[in-house]
Amino acid sequence: MTQPLTQDRAHAAIRTALRGFATEADLETLDPGENLREALELDSLDFLTFVERLSGDLGTRIEEADYAKLSTLDSTTEFLLTRG
């Protein structure tokens, strides 16, 4: 039986998916409501890589229609938790 996704697990998955685009220090100081693409200067390919890493880590497919829900740390966490 699969355990439900926790907030801590969601945060860890997001940070792991963003490795290479930002340092741990940058991620720690990033405002949870700040736009990820702007703050981390992610272009379209970088963002797609982030989504693919996140999908792979959590074993769930993220549809293109849901990309807007991945705009901030808070919204990405909320999206992942509701998908659970």
Rank of each mutant, 00 (worst) to 15 (best):
M1H: 15
T2Q: 15
Q3N: 14
Q3W: 10
Q3M: 11
Q3F: 13
P4L: 09
P4F: 04
P4N: 07
L5W: 02
L5E: 08
T6Y: 08
T6N: 05
D8E: 12
A10Y: 03
A10Q: 04
H11G: 11
H11K: 14
H11N: 15
A12W: 13
A12H: 13
A12D: 14
A12L: 14
A12G: 12
A13E: 00
I14Q: 02
I14N: 01
R15I: 13
R15E: 15
R15H: 13
T16E: 14
T16H: 14
A17I: 05
L18C: 07
L18W: 06
L18F: 08
R19A: 14
R19W: 11
R19P: 11
G20Q: 04
F21W: 03
F21A: 05
F21G: 01
A22G: 07
T23L: 08
T23W: 09
T23Q: 07
T23E: 07
E24Y: 06
E24H: 08
A25I: 10
A25L: 11
D26P: 03
E28G: 07
T29K: 13
L30I: 10
P32C: 05
P32H: 06
P32K: 02
P32W: 02
N35T: 09
N35K: 10
N35V: 07
L36S: 01
R37I: 05
E38L: 12
A39G: 03
A39N: 04
L40A: 00
L40V: 00
L40F: 00
L42G: 02
L42H: 06
L42N: 01
L42F: 03
D43R: 01
L45D: 06
L45V: 09
L45Y: 09
L45W: 06
D46W: 04
F47I: 05
F47C: 08
F47N: 09
F47L: 06
T49I: 11
T49Y: 07
F50L: 01
V51S: 02
E52R: 15
E52N: 15
L54E: 02
S55E: 10
S55I: 06
S55W: 10
G56M: 08
G56P: 03
D57I: 14
L58M: 06
L58N: 04
L58T: 08
L58D: 00
G59E: 09
G59H: 09
T60Y: 08
R61G: 11
I62T: 02
I62S: 02
I62L: 11
E63T: 10
E63H: 12
E63M: 06
E64D: 12
A65V: 10
D66C: 02
D66Y: 02
Y67F: 13
Y67T: 05
Y67V: 01
Y67H: 10
A68G: 12
A68I: 12
A68E: 12
K69T: 09
K69S: 09
L70N: 01
L70T: 07
L70R: 01
L70H: 00
T72D: 01
T72M: 07
T72F: 06
L73F: 13
L73R: 03
L73S: 00
D74V: 08
S75E: 15
T76I: 01
T77R: 14
T77G: 13
E78R: 15
E78T: 15
F79I: 08
F79C: 07
F79V: 10
L80G: 00
L80C: 00
L81V: 06
L81C: 04
T82P: 04
T82S: 12
G84I: 09
G84H: 10
G84N: 09
